[in-house]
Amino acid sequence: MKVEGEHLFKAPREVVYEMFNDPDALGAAVPGMQKMIKLDESHYEAVLGIRVGPVSANFSGNLSLTDEVPPESVTLVIEGKGGAGFVKGVGYVKFEDLGDETTLLKYTGEANIGGTLASVGQRMIDSVAKSMFKTVFEKLDKILEERWQKN
């Protein structure tokens, strides 16, 4: 499955980038996130509950940040597995400074999904992924609003 999209954040690039390195922010933004622990600067451990149509299950896995070029770009590598299958994905995230204290996030990526999630849920995965991205960005917007306004 390929994913692609963009989102406009109303904050300077450094602030947005910093937020993406904050497990508390990410953990709060991702729906169904039950646990997110920072192992070191670029590795996280997470437990995520996912519901795709008739399939709902917990996935536990790792999130790594590689090829970090602060505050321009980062590559996310995700590996998770659970009772309903597995997800492996790579996401390439770019932060474009638009100059007016706004940042355009662009992402492309590919996810490899297996097990029950694929064999029973594939029809719904695209739309679930889309709605998940939408929720994440909405929540991040709120978090950002709070943080940016505080500063």
Partner: peptide
Amino acid sequence: YDENGQLLTASFMD
């Protein structure tokens, strides 16, 4: 089957 050998149609829904 997708390119990873995952069967995508394992129910009467698909």
